[in-house]
Simulated scan of single mutants.
Amino acid sequence: MKTCLVVDDSPVIRKVSRRILEDLGFEVAEAANGVAAMAWCDAMMPDVILLDWWMPEMDGLEVLRRVRASHGGNVPQVIFCSGETEIERIREALEAGADEYIMKPFDGAIVAGKLQSLGLLQVRAA
């Protein structure tokens, strides 16, 4: 089973994300901030990270940079999931190593589409 680390300071976003990802067949872990996310990644690198931008203690961009610089940091597919909508900021995240970007609010179809585009989810036959 593929693993996903959901990193967001909002308990509601973590809960919604967990439900979507578990319904898609992922094993899900949660982190409420960047420091907790890095501790989790140091212990076990997930297959995918759903990452918020603005969080206390360490923002998502710093988490992304640290993950990519760490041992095994090339493994996870990183999907930024943020309310940040300015194209310059989105470009900054992608240039820093994010694989995809989702703008909040989002739903299961959006998450599934991004996971499919990254090869992490098989398209289900109708």
Rank of each mutant, 00 (worst) to 15 (best):
P76D: 10
A29F: 12
N33A: 07
G72P: 02
E84V: 12
A96W: 02
S10D: 04
K114M: 07
A69P: 03
L121A: 12
F26Y: 13
R68N: 07
I20K: 01
R91M: 06
Y101P: 03
N74W: 07
R91F: 07
A69I: 12
G119H: 13
C81G: 11
K15D: 08
R65V: 03
E57A: 13
A93T: 04
A98L: 08
A31V: 06
V123F: 09
S117E: 15
G119L: 14
V35K: 06
V111G: 01
E86Q: 10
V6C: 14
R68T: 08
G83H: 08
T85Y: 08
R91A: 09
D59R: 00
R91W: 05
V123C: 12
G72N: 06
E30S: 14
V78C: 02
C4A: 15
M55E: 00
L61F: 02
L50H: 04
L94P: 03
M103F: 05
I102K: 05
C81S: 13
L21R: 04
P105C: 09
M1C: 11
L5K: 05
Q122V: 11
M45F: 02
D59H: 00
L121H: 11
D99W: 10
D47A: 13
D99A: 15
D23K: 15
G34Y: 00
M45T: 10
Q116M: 15
I49N: 00
E84C: 08
M103W: 08
S82D: 08
V6T: 10
R18L: 04
R65K: 15
E22Q: 15
V6P: 10
A31D: 03
E84Q: 10
L50K: 06
S82Q: 07
C41F: 05
E22F: 14
V16I: 13
E100V: 11
V28P: 03
G60I: 00
Y101N: 03
D47E: 11
R89G: 05
L118Q: 02
K104H: 10
N74T: 11
E95K: 13
T3W: 05
G72V: 10
M44Q: 15
S10W: 05
S70I: 01
G60N: 01
V6S: 11
V67M: 04
S17V: 09
D42S: 13
M45H: 07
D52L: 09
R124N: 12
